[in-house]
């Protein structure tokens, strides 16, 4: 039963986040809120990158080397082709290969 409740909790919280701004700022959005709407996504994406890498240790082997190389390949591919699917596929394949050899 608990997994059902957790999935519903995730679904309802997500829905609340998506619908609330429309309910609260339906007609006029305060300037400060639109400013946050413009700049926060970039900052939060940066936060999520760090969040994903939070368990990586630079002091213990393999010193974050697989993450560094695979992450670098994502940046390089994205800068080159501007295609997120290609970048994600490449990074994931590189990472899966590296953790097996390093």
């Amino acid at each position: 039963m608990r997994p059902v409740i957790l999935v519903l909790a995730m679904a309802l919280t997500t829905m609340a986040l998506r619908f609330l701004p429309f309910l609260i700022f339906g007609k006029r959005t305060p300037k400060y809120v639109s400013y946050l709407g413009k700049v926060l996504p970039q900052a939060i994406i940066a936060l999520l990158v760090v969040y994903c890498l939070r368990e990586v240790s630079v002091t213990a082997p393999p010193h974050g080397i697989p993450e560094l190389i695979a992450g670098g390949s994502v940046v390089g591919m994205q800068a080159w082709k501007r295609n997120a699917v290609l970048s994600i596929l490449l990074g994931t394949v590189v990472y899966m290969a590296l953790i097996r050899v390093i």
Partner: peptide, 22 residues
């Protein structure tokens, strides 16, 4: 073994970060 496939999430955010940066 699918070990390491979870990096797809990290890669998703790194790609978005790079795209927004560019």
């Amino acid at each position: 073994s699918t070990a390491g496939i979870e990096f797809s999430m990290t890669a998703l955010f790194i790609a978005s970060f790079t795209e927004q940066w560019l």
